[in-house]
Amino acid sequence: MRAFARYLTCLRDPRYYQIMVLSLLLGYGIVILDFGIRWQNAVAIFGTAQVVQLLAMRATGQRRFDPLSALITSISLTLLLRTDEISLAILAACIAIASKFLVRIRGKHVFNPANAALVFLLLISDSAWISSGQWGSAAIAAFALACLGFLVLTRAKRAETTIAFLLAYSLLLFGRAIWLGDPMSIPLHQMQNGALLLFAFFMISDPKTAPNTATARVAFGAFVASIAYVIQFVIYEPNGPILALIISAPLVPLIDAISRGRIYQWDHSAEDAARPIKGVY
């Protein structure tokens, strides 16, 4: 009975749901949509991420090894990063995890790990890319359902960023269509993008890198949406949302300095809540 209770407490950590949903999406992408994800890349990313996480935790003197966050980063990277070179996949995993430990302000890491790695690779190499169109529109309904399910299951904890981003971005797209006199099928089609949903639900939503107060999170989500819009539809560069997040992320420590709020902890068991947060998860 006690074991069961402990098990339930453990499941309150939203990362389990996140891992479950992301794994489902990854499985769907590989089996049904034939993403052409190279298994060597996947193995390299998963392995490297855990090793770097372990080494970095040792180096920073943390005893309790926590594989979950590195696992989430690995799945996100496997889903989004495309490359034919395994060395780039390894580099991506290194950068992702290392960025958590190296770029820190006031006890929080600044960049979402997968986001930092993706942008870095896009900048330095022609051999890495993001296939944002590969989800297709048929999968979108199921995809959206899985993402919403994730929000509900995790009791919408700190979901303001996601909701604000999606609302602001769709307002901008529909507004643009009205301004251009385009049919509404165009912004609808633009919103039905798997990579966009993946970004909104699993990257910008990252509670560890989002601002600490609810109001600030709403403002931050809307801000990222507007930067993404400018990148995508004013200067016509692809991967708007992912670039927008990396540009906006350094603002979070500033926002946190002005506003007050509590740094997010992954699990909320009474024991942990009482402890000051020192670790990097």
């Binding site: 034939d34 296939s131 944002s132 169109g133 590969q134 297709g136 529109s137 089609h189 633009q190 692809p238």
Partner: peptide, 10 residues
């Protein structure tokens, strides 16, 4: 080359 707003399928 692939399309970014539609699915490119082999």
């Amino acid at each position: 080359v692939e399309t970014t707003n539609y699915r490119t399928v082999k």
